[in-house]
Nucleic acid binder design. Structure first.
Lengths: 211, 211
DNA sequence: CGCGACCTTGAGATGGCTCAATACCAGTGG
DNA sequence: CCACTGGTATTGAGCCATCTCAAGGTCGCG
């Protein structure tokens, strides 16, 4: 049985690393779990995470969920090719964003906007590889490593993300995620201080696990 | 046992629907299966399909393959955020493309390039939903429907794509793809004339199957 | 203290995988 | 013309990774 000191979402430091185009907008806050916009709504606004984290969600008619991406401080989201959001966006934890009209992007250089979309695309393709071809263990490990990198967290990762969100991102069930984490700990590869704080004890070995 | 009149790839009509930026380049042909560029190579060229079809492939160290996207006539591919291709590109069948230096894109408008990347991204997110949350039957059906639409093929889809490529795109094995198609035919939803030519007999029912 | 949200663990079921055999077709060479 | 080969597709049988269902634990909060 696992020690379970804290079931609250870990705070995410508001560090905008700003490789994205500057975008002035109105600040807005969302509570944990709150919807920022819904699938199918008119996509006339674009957003940028200031602090917290955002999930982009696609849902099937029968309720199956797939999180297609997370966004962390400094990142832009809500930009669409069409006039409607293809995925919903929700706050993963207490989150603040800035909002701007989409038209306010037109002044940006082609390079910067295009680069942003391309980076998202590449991350999505990595994700597709994970979903299509990796085992449960590989999925969880690659997720932890990706998160450590994106949050610039070193070896000690504070998960702003629940087991359910991990499962919905990784195409697994919550039970499988939980069991996998337990097993990784039993193997000495990670240490789970509390369920939202994970220490990557053997990053080299972890990286080898997923390729 | 299935009639199997033809195991050759179906030809893909060279119909560039040209919503993409005009891009003059040198024409080049590739044989079925031939590599156009490899994962990790310097990404200084961009390509456009003239006829045929192209697959973008990510491969794990142990050989597991995931096709992250297909490209059909008129579509651009090979554009990267970084300086290196993140996925390899291969000709699915006899294919001709035009090639240009990446720098030749800089004259294009922000809107058009950006829109292209965003469309690819949205398709990739759909793909992630399929890989993460749909059953084998749903995957195959959504693939057939997507292909019918992208090839503008109506109800009679000529697959330029082998069972193995379908499997590698859908995150399944070739056996599962084959069994699924057999079952769809037994259910009267499709008719397989030869293994590369599929008739969607009840498109409505098929669409309902995957959402 | 009791409730609700979240997480873990166990036992059994199952969808898709693995391994193996067979079939079909195109091309090649005798 | 046939035999043979290699690439592709289909089918079957058994297995296993993950899912489902169910129970219990931990924490934060009213």
């Amino acid at each position: 049985m696992q020690a379970q000191v804290l079931a609250r979402p870990a705070p995410v430091r508001p560090i905008p690393p700003d490789p994205t185009p500057s975008l002035i907008g109105i600040a807005k806050s969302f509570a944990r779990g709150q919807e920022i916009y819904g699938e199918g709504e008119a996509a006339d606004l674009v957003y940028r995470v200031v602090s917290g984290a955002v999930r982009e969600v696609r849902v099937l008619a029968d309720g199956r969920r797939q999180i297609v991406d997370f966004h962390f401080p400094g990142e832009l989201f809500g930009v669409q090719a069409g006039r409607v959001y293809r995925a919903g966006a929700e706050a993963v934890c207490e989150t603040t964003v800035t909002v701007a009209r989409r038209s306010s992007l037109s002044g940006q250089s082609a390079e910067s906007l295009w680069g942003l979309a391309l980076r998202d695309l590449e991350r999505c393709q990595d994700h597709a590889l994970t979903l299509g071809r990796r085992s449960a263990t590989e999925r969880v490990v690659s997720f932890l490593l990706e998160l450590a990198e994106r949050l610039d967290a070193g070896a000690s990762v504070e998960l702003p993300i629940s087991r359910q969100d991990m499962a919905d991102y990784l195409g697994l069930t919550i039970e499988t995620v939980s069991r996998t984490i337990t097993q990784l700990q039993a193997d000495g590869l990670i240490e789970v201080r509390c369920c939202r704080q994970v220490l990557l004890k053997r990053p080299r070995a972890l990286a080898e696990l997923c390729e």
